[in-house]
Simulated assay, not measured.
Amino acid sequence: MTILYRLFQIGESSSYTNLIIRFRQEYSAKYKHDLKGYFEPNSLRAESPDLVAKEDPHGLDFSDLMEERFARFVRESYEREIISMGRAGEMLKLSIMEMRALVRTWKEL
């Protein structure tokens, strides 16, 4: 719905309601069901397995990316003084000594 509203804002349609109706009709025609209720569309992997790499050439897993993202958010929060060093350590499952060493490496970079 957000994307449809943005398309309306940039002038891709003269009516937001008509844009939603058209989207729902085309989706229903293509996938033979609507988006009412609890239905979630299939992932890219299920729809088109050839679009998703069979294995990552760098050996990364989705969970690796999530952990890096979380650690980055913790670092940003600590540097903005939103959370304390102790709280950052708890979130990253590090002792206070390990957290101090990590903060020193952040400063060196």
Results as ranks from 00 to 15, higher is better:
26 E>I: 04
108 E>N: 06
97 M>C: 04
35 L>E: 01
93 K>Y: 10
25 Q>C: 06
34 D>I: 02
57 P>S: 12
35 L>G: 01
76 E>G: 07
13 S>C: 09
109 L>E: 15
6 R>D: 12
88 A>D: 06
70 F>H: 11
40 E>Y: 14
23 F>I: 07
99 M>H: 00
85 M>E: 10
38 Y>I: 06
3 I>N: 09
52 V>R: 02
78 Y>G: 04
61 D>F: 11
64 D>G: 04
66 M>H: 05
60 L>Y: 13
38 Y>C: 08
2 T>P: 04
48 S>L: 05
54 K>T: 12
108 E>D: 11
74 V>E: 01
12 E>R: 14
86 G>V: 07
99 M>D: 06
21 I>G: 03
29 A>D: 15
77 S>D: 14
88 A>G: 08
55 E>P: 00
91 M>I: 11
78 Y>V: 08
3 I>W: 05
27 Y>L: 06
39 F>D: 00
68 E>F: 08
83 I>M: 09
24 R>S: 11
70 F>I: 11
54 K>V: 05
109 L>F: 12
22 R>Y: 01
58 H>L: 15
96 I>V: 09
46 A>L: 06
81 E>M: 03
12 E>G: 04
85 M>R: 09
75 R>G: 00
29 A>W: 08
56 D>G: 02
50 D>L: 11
46 A>H: 11
66 M>S: 10
86 G>M: 03
86 G>Y: 02
97 M>H: 12
32 K>R: 12
4 L>T: 08
50 D>Q: 13
12 E>V: 08
29 A>S: 10
92 L>R: 07
15 S>A: 01
97 M>V: 12
50 D>E: 15
71 A>F: 05
81 E>I: 02
51 L>S: 10
91 M>Q: 07
42 N>E: 14
60 L>C: 02
68 E>G: 05
43 S>Y: 08
86 G>W: 06
16 Y>I: 04
103 V>E: 00
87 R>V: 09
56 D>K: 06
60 L>R: 14
17 T>D: 15
37 G>H: 04
27 Y>N: 02
51 L>W: 14
94 L>A: 02
36 K>S: 15
83 I>L: 11
84 S>V: 07
97 M>D: 15
14 S>R: 14
8 F>L: 01
17 T>N: 13
67 E>R: 10
101 A>R: 14
100 R>D: 00
93 K>H: 13
52 V>E: 06
94 L>H: 09
57 P>A: 09
82 I>L: 10
16 Y>S: 03
105 T>K: 15
30 K>I: 12
94 L>K: 08
39 F>H: 12
70 F>D: 01
15 S>V: 05
77 S>Y: 05
90 E>I: 00
8 F>G: 03
